[in-house]
């Protein structure tokens, strides 16, 4: 008998009836965009707004200047490269010899008001490394991508990609003396630029 068969033989002996279940979602404020922004800021993410896509390159440049990130390597996700025509679009290569980019700019599948999170799906238009390797991650969110609950974000996914990354604020650790410190292994800064539309 294989290990699998042995395990299942014991498990089948302990089977019991399914349990009737309800599913509750937390009640949320009506203004989802305001709620998203409030919750995202509570996780130490920063925010900016632009009226339309044409304003994105300037908003990015202003943010980088205001955080003293000038003369840095920027990688733009292929999926939104046309929004930043002046910037090159290259995934950050997971290679120690590659200088890598300090800043990544990506889109998202959805932004979740409940938790202030952004949802990323891996794929050719959005390599996963962009979410984790840079020092700063800039996320472009359209107001119509803001959903209420986590469940509303999952339904935006048609077929499961290799990796879904639900990101709630910049990387952090409290492993030394329970003291919160941003930028453990992932980005030190998470900046969201919200575009109307």
């Amino acid at each position: 008998m294989s290990s699998r068969e042995r395990i299942f033989a014991t498990l089948y002996e302990a089977v019991a009836e399914p349990v009737a279940m309800t599913h509750t979602r937390p009640r949320l404020d009506d203004d989802l965009i305001a709620l998203f922004e409030h919750n995202a800021q509570a996780t130490a993410a920063t925010l900016d707004h632009v009226a339309d896509e044409a304003g994105l390159p300037d908003a990015l440049a202003n943010y980088l200047a205001s955080t003293n990130q000038t003369d840095v390597g920027i990688a733009v996700a292929p999926g939104i490269a046309d929004l930043f025509p002046a910037l090159h679009s290259a995934p950050i290569q997971p290679d120690a010899t590659h200088p890598g980019a300090e800043v990544s700019v990506t889109g998202c599948i959805a932004a979740v008001a409940e938790t202030g999170s952004v949802l990323m799906a891996s794929g050719p238009t959005h390599p996963t490394t962009l979410n984790f390797l840079p020092e700063t991650h800039v996320v472009i969110i359209r107001t119509n991508q803001v959903v209420a609950h986590l469940e509303d974000a999952w339904v935006m996914i048609e077929t499961m990609p290799r990796a879904l990354n639900l990101i709630t604020g910049p990387s952090r650790t409290a492993d030394i003396e329970q003291t919160l410190q941003l930028g453990a292994h992932g980005p030190r800064r998470l900046h969201a630029i919200v575009v109307a539309g």
Binding site: S117, A163, T168
Partner: peptide, 14 residues
């Protein structure tokens, strides 16, 4: 409310 990273892995690289 949620950890910083909640990731869902499904299979190998496509």
């Amino acid at each position: 409310p949620l950890t910083t990273y909640t990731s869902v892995f499904t299979g190998a690289r496509r």
